[in-house]
Design a protein around this nucleic acid. Structure first.
Lengths: 340, 340
DNA sequence: CTGAAAGCGCTAACAC
DNA sequence: GTGTTAGCGCTTTCAG
């Protein structure tokens, strides 16, 4: 195991003080008016021997870790995976590393995770928060840690967040179905008190109300076993044969609906029109391509990281918070084709 | 910004030496024969004030970070995302956090990333290595850092790895197609010199050779823009109308093939039978369900993390390396139905 | 059983 | 311009 060299080693080798080395390495040579000649000599040597400052020691000293904590609901969900990917790229480009974890929307797990991140002295937090986590987030903010929420926000906590216009999205999608001649439109989603889901339900309900149609909402309790969800969906479909269209609250439910439809041998859209929140490869390739509410993944990731980097780079703790709401796009495909 | 308390603070509050606190907190009370009464008092107080040792300082001192570096090809690829998810779970349960990154199979980027991880003193590495990274990996190993490779291995570097039986998988899939009556079977994949891809090509070729059939291999240079790949696939299909079956080298190519087939309006399997390496939600739901070579995701993740934790917990640096090869499962669906 | 003290490698006042 | 030095918060040896 090769002994790692420290700043002292290289200071000795060069017969220079370690302070000088430190200044040079931190780009403060000008400021400290260190001779260009020395600077070059040091830089050259450092490069030669491949010296790397120990960032742990640096962090301990400066209190900065250059790590961003990213908490998504589930990294294996393509929506979150794509966002994570984009955030990762921009973070790395700006000298930050990402520690991530999946919360499973589990409040206790998330509390633990936040505590671990804190403990690790991460510089900033990007969180898709589960329910009931308000106090922990508020505590982070109170202690001056930059936090950016996304996908959903916490109305009781004042902080930056990036979300999409969920209410309008489902409102718009529902209207589209109505215009296509569907009258018995159901909404299937996971039960959730989170803002994004509440807004989606609300948008759906508003559109129906405007047309004097009756909402039919099935909220399924989330279960990690997909088959359970599929079963719930099938039962719902069987018990509500009059339904002629379904909107799904997210991509997971959407996938389960498609599988349920396959099992039941239904024709889309003849027997059932469908629209899903979140776009997904599958939807484009499904036997009847599926109309989807596509979230602007790149824009979400971009805004999230921009806001966070911004907070990280400025000392102004109280310049107010940014709430960013992005538009979605209704990608109309065959699964919502006119009834006639 | 609440001042974090340090071990000194709590030592003072309790009128005990910080050494004692340290021992108690590290579960060495017994060993040091500290009175049960004191232990309890300390633990109670620590819990009360919510003291958390500063893990940075701890790491600096002990040289351990309790962080595992995970390098996948692309976290937004469902294969890698799923594995990452499972690894993450087990790692957290064992007190390790994960820092991850996507290599894009880019050698230079990966070198940088490894250097960053090293710098961060991660305790162990889990890597799906790109080509040309042998020296860097070897250097990690030489310095006593535990490294587990997965998905592919580096023949020139002796270390632990977990892969699947790629050669047999495509051999078997190809034979299946032959048995179903297909004679002009092509293989489409990304160009790669990595072991997993070479083995997949080899398995395909062997099966064809055994039946005196001619291999027809199209290796596409990877391009992040999916449309380019789709275009390549379409062109290939157009230029080779005699082909009656295609095997795809991975899920990405598989997705592109499906999209190309949709554009061209081909019937599966009447015009073209298909089998894809990697299983994927889409394949099950595609208008003609797609036969796939399913990798044992859980088993891969499980073996990877088990091997790594094992190395992390034992000091024996040279107990030999483990090479684990897991079986895949050929999920026969409709896209490879008999030609007749 | 407990305490003093020496660092881990780095930064940044503060001297010179 | 450069060197001295005091920590950041923790672990651990060595004495009592």
């Amino acid at each position: 195991m090769k002994k790692k060299l420290s700043i002292v080693d290289i200071a000795n080798s060069l017969n220079v003080s370690k302070t000088t080395i430190s200044f040079i390495l931190n780009g403060r040579a000008k400021e400290k008016r260190i001779s260009a000649e020395l600077v070059e000599r040091v830089l050259k040597y450092v490069d030669e021997v491949g010296y790397k400052p120990n960032s742990l020691a640096k962090s301990l000293r400066t209190g900065k870790s250059n790590i961003i904590g990213l908490m998504v609901e589930d990294i294996s969900n393509p929506f979150f995976a794509s966002i994570a990917r984009l955030i990762e790229d921009r973070a790395y480009k700006n000298g930050y590393k990402i520690i991530y974890c999946s919360t499973d929307n589990d409040t206790e797990k998330t509390k633990d995770l936040i505590s671990m991140f804190r403990d690790r002295h991460v510089d900033g937090y990007i969180i898709a928060p589960p329910e009931g986590i308000e106090d922990d987030i508020a505590s982070l903010i109170k202690d001056g840690l930059p936090v950016v929420l996304f996908d959903r926000n916490l109305p009781k906590v004042e902080t930056d967040f990036v979300v999409v216009d969920n209410l309008f999205s489902t409102y718009n999608a529902t209207r589209h179905l109505i215009e296509q001649g569907y009258k018995n439109i159901a909404l299937i989603t996971f039960h959730s008190l989170q803002t994004q889901m509440q807004a989606r339900v609300e948008g759906y309900a508003q559109a129906l109300n405007e047309h004097a149609l009756t909402p039919n909402i099935r909220e399924i309790v989330f279960n990690p076993d997909e088959n359970i969800t599929i079963q719930h969906v099938q039962t719902f479909l069987n018990d509500n044969k009059h339904i002629d269209a379904v909107i799904c609250g997210n991509n997971h439910v959407g996938m389960c609906l498609l599988k349920a439809i396959n099992h039941l041998g239904l024709q889309v859209p003849q027997n059932l029109a469908i629209i899903c929140f979140d776009d997904y490869d599958v939807f484009e390739l499904y036997s009847t391509s599926v109309t989807a509410i596509a979230q602007p993944i790149e824009a979400i990731a971009d805004n999230v990281i921009t806001v966070l980097l911004d907070k990280l780079n400025t000392t102004n703790n109280h310049s107010g918070y940014q709430s960013i709401t992005l538009k979605t796009e209704l990608k109309i495909r065959n699964s919502s084709k006119s009834k006639g």
